[in-house]
Structures are given as C-alpha cells and as structure tokens.
Design a protein around this nucleic acid. Structure first.
Lengths: 261, 261
DNA sequence: CCACATAGTGGCTATAAGCCGCTATATGGT
DNA sequence: ACCATATAGCGGCTTATAGCCACTATGTGG
C-alpha cells in the first residue's frame, strides 16, 4: 500500500467529487484507507473510594508505546465488537474490573498530532464510578500490572503516559463539579449504606467538610433514597440503611453545596 | 492494498506484540492503515438569536453521502491543518460564518457503526454561540446552501442527515442546561447590550419568562458586566449599555434560575 | 405638557443552606 | 445494673438568594 494512498483529505474529497455519482456508486468507491485518519481510542478514569480516599485505576502498559509506564485503562475501538463508543467503554470497564454495571459518563475527547507517538489520535475519555466492594482487578495482555492510586490534591503520585494527566484532570474536574449539585456519589458505595457513609463520600470527593443537617435534609428531601428496613450496627447507636431508588443515581439539585461561611 | 491489511485490530496488535522491540522499532513498523479505523469528523451546532428565536446554522450537503440533505456544518479532521480537535472546530466555524472568536465548547462525541454509511465513524460535537450581527454566511465546495433554522420546542422544522438530530439535541440540551446556572447567553449578543436584551436572550433559550428584578440582581451581583457609559435610546426611557468583563462570559451561579412558583 | 412605553427599584415572601446544640440509642467496661 | 462513650438524628434559628409585584424614573412623540 502507499502508492495509491491519497494522504491529503481535501485532495481525496475533490477526487471523489469530480464525477457525478449516485450515492450507491460513491459508497462503492469509498475506502477509508484512502485517507489519513486519526487513531481512535477510549480511555477511562475509573474512580472508587477506598481507605478514605478517592482512588483511580491505573494500568502498567505491557506494550509499546510507553511500555512500562502507568496509564489510564483504555484501548482502541474494536469495530467488530463495539457498536458504539459506549460499548467500547463498557468493554474496557469489564475487562479491568469485572464490573458489569455502574455509573459511566462520557467526559471529553482529546485529539491532536502530538499526544501519541503513533500519530494523530483521538481519545474519548469516560468517567466510571464503582463501589470498591466486590471488584477483582485483572491484568490482560495489554497491561502487566493494575492498581488503585489515590488522587492527592491537584495531581497524583504516579506520572501517567501520553496526555493522561490531562485526561485524568478533566475527569476528576467533571466529578468534583457534578458532586456539587448532583447525587453521583451514591454510585461509589455498595448497594446499602448509611447517610453518614454517603456524607463521608461527598466530603472525600469535595475535599471539604459538609454540614450534617444540611446534607441530610438535602438528600432526604430529594426523595432519591429508600430505607432498606435494616440497620447498620456498631459500638454505638445503629444507623438506618438506605438504598438508591431507581433514577436516584443522578439527581440534580437546584442549588450547589455552598460550604462554610 | 487489501492483501496485507490486517483488518481485525486485535490480530494486528498480537502480531505487533509478538516480537521484542524497542519503542523506536515498534513505531517504525507501525502503520495506521494496518488497522480498520473509524472516520473522525467534527460537527457543530452554531447557535444565534435572531428575530426573537434561537436558531442554528445548517448546510445543504453538496456531496455524497446524504447529498442534498440538510446537516450540521462539520467535516473531517485535517491532519495537515489541525493540531487539535479544537483547531478543526475553529476552522469549520470560520469557514461557515467568517467569525474568528466566540464561545466554543466541546459537547459530546458520537461513535458507531451505523451513523454514517461510509462505515464506523466518530463525530466530536461542538457548540458555538455567536452574535447574529456582523456575520456573513458562506458556502463552499461541500455545501450548496447555508441557512439559519429556528429551533422549535423539542425539534426543528428540517430533518437532518446522519444522526445530526441527536447531535443537535445534545448540543441544545447542553445549552439549555447551562443557561440555568451560567452567564453563557452573553455570547449571543453584540459587544454592547442592555440588561433587558440580555434577559430576553435568556428567556428565548429557556423558553420561559424570567422575573425582571431577580434577573437584574443576579447578573449585577455577579459582577460580570461593566457599564459602557453609553445609553441605548428609543421611544422611551433610555437603558444603560453594558459589556462583558473579561472572564464574565462563563460565570457559574451557585443557584439555578427557578422559575415561577 | 401629557400619554406612553420601557428602565430601574423598594420591600416583602419563600425556599433551602449553614449553624449549633440537644436528644436518642446502641455498645461495652466496671 | 449502670454509666461513659460514641455516633445517629433532629429542632429551631440565621442567612443568602430567588420570586413577586407595585411603584417610581425618564425618555419620545403627539
């Protein structure tokens, strides 16, 4: 290949346009490989709360490029397996964590000439939230190691390959932003939880304390939780256990959490 | 081409992985055309307010596929012209409207096997806001006609090609959502405007009336505008003219507009 | 000089967040 | 059996900001 490749998209377009064709004829002659096209990948920031900290999943790359470096999990769109971009994201999530369902949201796409040494590339970044319970991390042929890394204030310990620092920053920013005015953190907890556990989760993500009464009023008035009927006991007063009502996992509040005066 | 093409990405990856290579050797052997890759385009919903209505720019396609149908302006990433996806978006905006700067925001990417008859494709959707003043719409070789279409409640008059109805819906949804709690509509007005004009713009996008006093308090307290010193006169009491302060074009309010009780 | 139209404000109510201390209810040590 | 401790959960006030709506201000044009 190569000789027949028209590498400039505009020349190719003009070439195809020159003749008067029906759409059927046009498509018959159309070949994606006549153009230089960007690579397309999906990369994910999979967040969980573990040991009192917000953590993100990273994998050590087993292959070139950036072999041996840590990166966000992700990979090429597989046109034979994936019908949509969301399919790719779900597939990657499943491959790394074994988790089937959880909160998944597309965040932003990053594209450019310099972000991957293989050439002009586009990555579609996704954000996933999962409960740290019942997860088995699994390596595969593309990663030689998988681990959780705590997100420290504005940055994390490990350096990430490609432009994944920027991708992670965008995902983390989206998460922090939405936690101000949505119920998203319910997706980071197991199915049943107490209001105090939920409040702690909010506080960990926002990295600031939340007033107890305000928090409980807000959540309860939103009517997005239901009591399980069970209590969580400890060495103190037991707490009611709640679970999320259908649709409750992404309720939008009219006002943001404001924080101390 | 064809014989040497490994069309299944995973087989190709395994093929490349088999040998022990340095990153430099790996990249030397790496050829994008060994893989089936999606097409990548950028499509834009360019909004303006004209004749008291929110309108979006559409172009009539001069080429296959979907020749003769209306579509959102957009096109392929040009790897020779564009360093990033934003460059592509700015280029498209400039081509159609002649506008250099205005509000531009990436909204969402749509990818799938069925959305374009040429094959698996990804489009990165952008939202642009421009003032209807000083714009000259211009056709080019890819569009035989360009026009503004009013967005009616939940949908618009013309049918759009590909999945552009969904793309437009996403952009419109993003706009409506953000107008609840940001100052975005300032980007739809000329440089100088009155508070009443700004309020009307909010009302048109939200498709509901906004209370005058609340609106003025909210905007003025946010301290995102400055008086020009000029007045806009008419056949009634003149109104102060304002312009947006630097950074004021995307201020986030802590509370949403709530609407009538 | 007055009718009109639109600009801009005063002052109240309503909603939801922050504050902070009080009460409730379990465990577990003595 | 009782009490110290710890955390759950609530009462009731303050504060900030949106909605309401009538009132005043200031221009044009007949």
């Amino acid at each position: 290949m190569g000789d027949m490749t028209i590498s400039h998209p505009i020349s190719a377009a003009v070439f195809l346009m020159a003749k008067q064709l029906t759409e059927k004829q046009f498509l018959k002659n159309y070949n994606v490989h006549d153009f230089d096209v960007p690579l397309v990948t999906v990369d994910m920031a999979i967040f969980t709360v573990k040991e009192g900290k917000l953590q993100v999943l990273v994998v050590k790359r087993a292959q070139h490029p950036a072999k041996g470096k840590w990166a966000l999990p992700g990979g090429f769109v597989d046109m034979t397996l994936d019908k949509t971009l969301n399919d790719t994201a779900y597939r990657k999530l499943k491959e790394k964590t074994g988790v089937e369902t959880s909160y998944l949201e597309q965040v932003e796409s990053f594209g450019g000439a310099g972000r991957d040494p293989r050439g002009w590339s586009v990555t579609v970044a996704y954000l996933a939230l999962i409960s740290s319970d019942d997860i088995v991390l699994s390596k595969d042929e593309s990663s030689e190691d998988v681990t959780w890394v705590a997100i420290e204030d504005e940055g994390e310990k490990v350096e990430l390959a490609f432009d994944h620092d920027a991708v992670l920053k965008a995902c983390h920013g989206r998460l922090k932003g939405k936690v101000q005015y949505t119920s998203l953190p319910v997706n980071l907890l197991p199915a049943d939880f107490t209001l105090t556990e939920l409040q702690k989760t909010f506080e960990i993500i926002l990295d600031k304390s939340v007033e107890k009464k305000s928090f409980r009023r807000r959540i309860l008035d939103a009517d997005i939780l239901e009591e399980t009927g069970e209590m969580k006991t400890g060495s103190n007063r037991p707490a009611k256990l709640y679970r999320v009502k259908p649709e409750g996992e992404s309720y939008f509040f009219a006002r943001s959490l404001e924080g101390p005066r």
